[in-house]
């Protein structure tokens, strides 16, 4: 069976004034459909970089990155956009459109799919409740704590009902109690037969994983 995600000797080198940084150095990896992969390792070892390659947010300097058996590195921009449309991505830095209310942010990925505004509002409210943010749909991102932003990021990743989730340290800013809501969501998502890849230091998430990849 074709792996859902695959890398073959993938390298990512960042060129900077102070010299080249090898963020990823020849990673080969196959993630089957329905797997739960935890990517661990010390800071700066390329967890975020690997997730960016798998999520078509970046291209490898050398080597291959495949999604559903198709090369992503050399694919056209529209093709990569279509791949992203099938994924839910939780970013480490929880970027948001700062002046838009939370409900808009959570369901912004649905705009180009033509989902009506009322439907988006309803969906956003339900998703925000799932991550423990209740009655604040109209709040702006700037009013949130770091942990709350992180949970909004998780809600947004789930909005488009993706076939896989790539989550970059989704519980890093959360206490055990609030992290539990996120963990439960990922567990449930995985239980429905879909693929989960998380970069994490969280032993609870690591314990959920069917596989662990340790970088560095």
């Amino acid at each position: 069976m074709t792996p859902h995600f695959e890398t073959r000797n993938a390298c990512r080198v960042f060129r900077s004034a102070t010299g080249d940084v090898r963020a990823l150095d020849g990673i080969s990896l196959a993630v089957e459909r329905g797997a739960f992969l935890a990517v661990t390792g010390p800071s700066g070892r390329g967890k975020t970089t690997l997730l960016a390659l798998l999520g078509a947010l970046d291209r490898p300097t050398s080597g291959l990155v495949l999604f559903d058996g198709e090369d992503l590195g050399g694919a056209s921009e529209p093709h990569r956009s279509r791949v992203r449309r099938r994924l839910g991505i939780v970013f480490q830095s929880s970027p948001m459109i700062e002046r838009l209310p939370l409900w808009e942010n959570v369901t912004y990925p649905l705009v180009p799919r033509g989902v009506p505004t009322r439907e988006r509002r309803r969906l956003a409210k339900a998703l925000l409740e799932r991550v423990g943010i209740v009655g604040r749909d109209a709040a702006r991102p700037e009013e949130l704590s770091g942990g709350e932003r992180q949970r909004v990021g998780v809600a947004r990743a789930l909005a488009a009902d993706p076939e896989a989730i790539l989550a970059d340290e989704p519980t890093s800013d959360l206490d055990r109690g609030t992290a539990e809501a996120v963990v439960a969501l990922l567990r449930e998502f995985h239980a429905s037969g879909r693929t989960v890849i998380v970069a994490t230091h969280d032993p609870v998430l690591e314990a959920l994983a069917t596989r662990t990849l340790r970088l560095g």
Binding site: E77, S81, R85, P109
Partner: peptide, 15 residues
């Protein structure tokens, strides 16, 4: 950043 976020969450360039 906004354009990057939109692209990252599945918007096409022309959108």
């Amino acid at each position: 950043r906004e354009a990057a976020l939109m692209k990252a969450t599945g918007w096409m360039t022309d959108e």
